[in-house]
Nucleic acid binder design. Structure first.
Lengths: 112, 112
DNA sequence: TTATATACATAATAAAATTAGGTATAATTT
DNA sequence: AAATTATACCTAATTTTATTATGTATATAA
């Protein structure tokens, strides 16, 4: 097993969370932001990210707008109202998930 | 997305952890223990568990012994020395994983 | 006697990722 | 000047990992 296998299944939650915090982001920015937040530990692969973004858009959770910045195209993603709901739900579930990992692993946490 | 997707990739870590804590366990017992530890929230499916146990045995991380209890067969699994190493590694990685989730989600935790 | 609990297992399928490849422009390094 | 790295998008083939469904068998409870 390698470390990265733990992240399987969390990518969608991460994307929804970042978009809720930052309002709008483009794909490449998401990869960089996650790398930054985790001090280089977690690298989102583009092969996972872009299909996910497209799926979430198709599901009506994200809406897009394209901009040309310094002659390069950026496709910005933002949460729709449905996406905001889903993002809140995802946060609750992630907290429960972490709590349950702590139960299993006997880690002790104090939420602030 | 449903909640259970978060667990993807954590099953191996969970199994290695439980076996380290409890010494030896059989498959059905693992499913029940996880259900108990998480108050029914996490149900390990047998279709995921048994192939995983077989894989870990094949990799030399687990060793088995079969016992007949009340006319039913139990196949006990225990960590080999290599499995113990892997289990320790998995715990470190899981702690880092949770820490990084906290970084991304701005959750704050105090480890004891 | 029918259903639930215990206990193992596999096969078909689906979901979600990795790996590898592709296009294109801008900036930096050699 | 040329090559590499960074920015920015994307898809296709494959692999990994799980779900769902199914099967066997015994013991216990409704």
């Amino acid at each position: 097993m390698n470390k990265s296998s733990l992240y399987k299944g969390c990518l969608e939650s991460i994307v929804l969370r970042l978009l809720k915090e930052q309002g709008r982001m483009y794909g490449y920015q998401i990869t960089q932001e996650v790398k930054h937040l985790t001090a280089g530990e977690l690298k989102i692969t583009e092969g996972a990210l872009y299909p996910l973004l497209h799926k979430l858009e198709e599901q009506g959770l994200l809406q897009t707008s394209t901009e040309k910045v310094e002659n390069r195209i950026r496709k910005y993603y933002a949460l729709t109202p449905a996406g905001k709901k889903e993002s809140s739900k995802a946060l609750v579930e992630l907290k429960q998930f972490v709590q349950q990992l702590e139960n299993i692993f006997k880690l002790q946490t104090a939420w602030k």
